[in-house]
């Protein structure tokens, strides 16, 4: 079962349909069981029963989740597959001490792979729809997997199956679907 985490400004917010529902539909389509929780409501039973977790994105102006780092500390000991999408990547990196630096990208970006990884198998690069104000500074325990000509676009923990991607599943339409939660690799790793 995948724990899908809504990082938007409020539980049941107007942003939910844009950032959480598309991932839910994707998981339904591929037949993966999931439960969705707002980041403020993730409890110990949710974490214990999850085989994997996905941290969803938020609107560009929506950074409320960054004010509650204590709500993401569980990532340090989760040790099962995690995919942080967009703001989710920022939350994942922050939990491991990664900061951010200004990098505004709104629109299509050419993303190039920097290191091989099964999640992006067979791709040297792909176009991705990116909407962000900040780039993640790669924490010491992570490696940069992909980058645009301006900033890092995907990261992976050096020894654990923890991934971050700056583009959301929406960019599945533009060729980066292998990095999405529908990816066979992510499914395999998430049990």
């Amino acid at each position: 079962m995948i724990l899908l985490i809504d990082l938007c400004y409020r539980d049941g917010s107007l942003s939910r349909d844009e950032f959480v529902a598309p991932v839910e539909r994707l998981l339904c389509r591929i037949g993966v069981a999931f439960v969705t929780r707002h980041y403020t409501a993730v409890g110990a039973p949710d974490l214990e029963s999850a085989d994997a977790a996905i941290l969803c994105g938020t609107a560009l102006m929506d950074t409320g989740y960054t004010e509650h780092p204590e709500l993401f500390r569980w990532l340090l000991t989760f040790e099962r597959p995690v995919l942080g999408i967009s703001s989710g990547m920022r939350a994942l990196a922050a939990a491991f001490g990664g900061g951010v630096e200004p990098c505004r990208e709104i629109g299509m970006a050419d993303v190039k792979m920097l290191a091989p990884d099964p999640l992006f198998a067979g791709q040297e690069g792909f176009p991705a729809y990116t909407v962000h104000d900040y780039a993640v500074q790669v924490p010491g325990e992570f490696v940069a997997l992909a980058a645009s000509d301006r900033c890092v676009q995907a990261i992976r923990h050096r020894s654990l199956p923890l991934y971050g991607s700056s583009s959301t599943p929406r960019s599945g339409t533009s060729g980066s679907s292998s990095g999405s939660p529908g990816s066979p690799v992510f499914r395999a790793r998430s049990g």
Binding site: L14, D17, A59, M61, I106, R170
Partner: peptide
């Protein structure tokens, strides 16, 4: 999105990938 960001406005697309 770009114009909204310039003006400090939130941008909502509730039908995105519906």
């Amino acid at each position: 999105q770009r114009v909204c960001r310039e003006l400090g406005l939130w941008c909502f697309n509730p039908l995105w990938l519906a």
